[in-house]
Write a protein that binds this DNA or RNA. Structure first.
Lengths: 340, 340
DNA sequence: ATGAAAGCGCTAACAA
DNA sequence: TTGTTAGCGCTTTCAT
């Protein structure tokens, strides 16, 4: 029993397929006699008719689908974003096609091609680097796109990001209020907006608190990974620099710090206060619970989906970007410095 | 500039679209003169031709796509499974369409319908309950399907699951070797194969070690959540039953135990040893690091994808199921009982 | 080895 | 308001 097609419905209802199509599509139902419409709908239901989205896509070059590009779903930062996106898209009949890029330019390229050939109507992209030819080209081509979490250097591409400057400033303020003056920073990759913005805000916050900047307290990590965070802190410790607190560029880098403290027999927060960024799931359960800048991940995804839908519906309109306010989740990984 | 179609390629190469189609498809290339084929291929490359999978799907009723149903991507158990699936599918040109069901039967139903209308060629399903009309129907309809992590009561549906019996036995043995004899179990939902199998194995393992079973040491949780785990342990503690160790049905239930220990001022492992199940990411970083039964999640996904591809390629063949051996990751949440 | 023709299921001009 | 017609881009008989 082949599933029923529009023709089957039309035949059963005694109308032309085109009429059946109009009757079944809410957008065009008003073009059709009310009685006819309800008859068609009844028949469709009786037959268990399901429209074939593939045929529709082929005809209309649309798909009610968007591409959602994340670096890696096993990074706990991204699943909540995905859920936020879906929570907004589902009610309006859209779906997200999720791909992992592993931050690999070649993979990104082939994923984008594959998604475009599947007629996705737009992209939500969590993998932006500041300079990103692929995404820049996409935007130049007029492909609807919203960035999430990270931005491009080109501020014209709509984005939904945490207010990194505000968050990093909060972190520094928290530490200074505890009495810290020697605050190190494990900066994230400087080819990402988050890495750059948090580093800059860290510097400015120190200045604002009258703390002179010490370049030897800044290490830039090559990736947002625990391993990189660990080697970053080792470098700081081995340099002999003095510091009583460290701000990780994100929670993974902070996690790496925990590993090094363990390995060196140092204690957190007694020997070193540690602050993370993002407040991803489970950092509140670490040993010790990690003080972190909280970012509303799911809302970020939801907001990005709203923005994209908006762009799809009003192609001409000026694109907006959204900056979400962070908050600080103070936990046991931060405490006043020892000598106090 | 509309992207080039097969007709454009054919025209440029001076052949009929049908010939171009044959030349471009590796499966049918042998039907075509070698020179013609290479000419077509060259033109296609020059024009940047990308076949339109939608048109192909409409014609062939296939899609090189499978549906991947998970309960919730924000549960860290599932992203590694997803990655494992993709790791196997990508090289053979298949993709996975991921959906979250939240274990909701209505959502499941509409997701399945939506995926089927998109011509997915099969399903990998991580959301099975023992009795599951939707999946049973799907299987009865001959829809290619592989279960992962959890199984149906109907053992004829191919599955890739951890060896729950072996894992639970390992956990109990570990605890008895430490000297525990009063071992409680927070059993998972008994409508899932994992919940049932782990509970049964726990019982059998106790018996095998000559420990009499005590029903007051078993609490069944209604969901695989931290909240349920917490109320389970509260119930055990409030009952006045004596026990020095608890085996969580999975890591989330074990996490709930941590919360209750904190709230009651009890210490792990001093007052209570806790064992989890699954060894999901980050449980090794908890306070204290959680002893857990390790399951190879990514391999589970990879193996499920292999099985499904196998079914798609050999529709007639007898379906296999795979049981993956667990191992135990011993960490600081387990120690000899106090009185020792 | 290649071309001709048909059609997958649907929608959008256009015509009536 | 409804029907006619055409075609989205591709593959697959069938004929040559």
């Amino acid at each position: 029993m082949r599933p029923p097609t529009l023709r089957d419905v039309a035949q059963q209802a005694g109308v032309h397929p085109a009429t059946a199509s109009r009757a079944l599509n809410p957008e065009t139902r008003n073009l059709v006699n009310e009685d006819t419409a309800s008859r068609v709908i009844k028949v469709a239901k009786a037959l268990g008719y399901r429209p074939n989205p593939i045929a529709r896509s082929l005809k209309t070059a649309r798909s009610a689908t968007i591409g959602l590009m994340v670096p890696d779903l096993t990074n706990p930062l991204f699943p909540p974003i995905v859920r936020g996106v879906e929570q907004v898209l589902s009610p309006v009949g859209y779906s997200a096609w999720i791909v992992n890029t592993d931050n690999d330019a070649d993979r990104e390229k082939s994923q984008v091609e594959s998604l475009r050939s599947r007629q996705v109507e737009g992209f939500i992209v969590a993998t932006a680097r500041l300079v990103h030819p692929l995404l820049e080209q996409l935007h130049a081509d007029g492909v609807p796109m919203v960035l999430v979490n990270r931005r491009l250097a080109d501020g014209n591409v709509p984005s939904v990001t945490p207010d990194d400057a505000a968050g990093a400033a909060m972190a520094v303020r928290h530490l200074t209020e505890l009495g810290h003056t020697r605050i190190a920073h494990l900066a994230g990759p400087q080819d990402t907006s988050t890495g750059v913005a948090r580093l800059r805000a860290y510097r400015e916050a120190l200045a604002a608190h009258g703390i002179p900047e010490d370049p030897s307290l800044i290490v830039t990590c090559a990736a947002w990974t625990e391993v990189e965070g660990a080697s970053g802190l080792r470098e700081l410790l081995d340099s002999g620099a003095e510091f009583s607190a460290v701000l990780g560029g994100n929670d993974m880098l902070a996690l790496g710090c925990y590993d090094v403290l363990e390995e060196r027999g140092l204690r957190c927060p007694d020997d070193l206060s540690v602050v993370g960024y993002n407040d991803v799931p489970f950092v509140d359960k670490l040993r010790p619970p990690l003080t972190s800048i909280h970012v509303p991940h799911q809302e970020m995804g939801a907001e990005a989906a709203h923005l994209l839908l908006d762009i799809l519906q009003n192609p001409g309109r000026h694109p907006r970007s959204v900056l979400l306010p962070p908050s600080i989740a103070v936990r046991q990984s931060t405490a006043p410095p020892k000598g106090r």
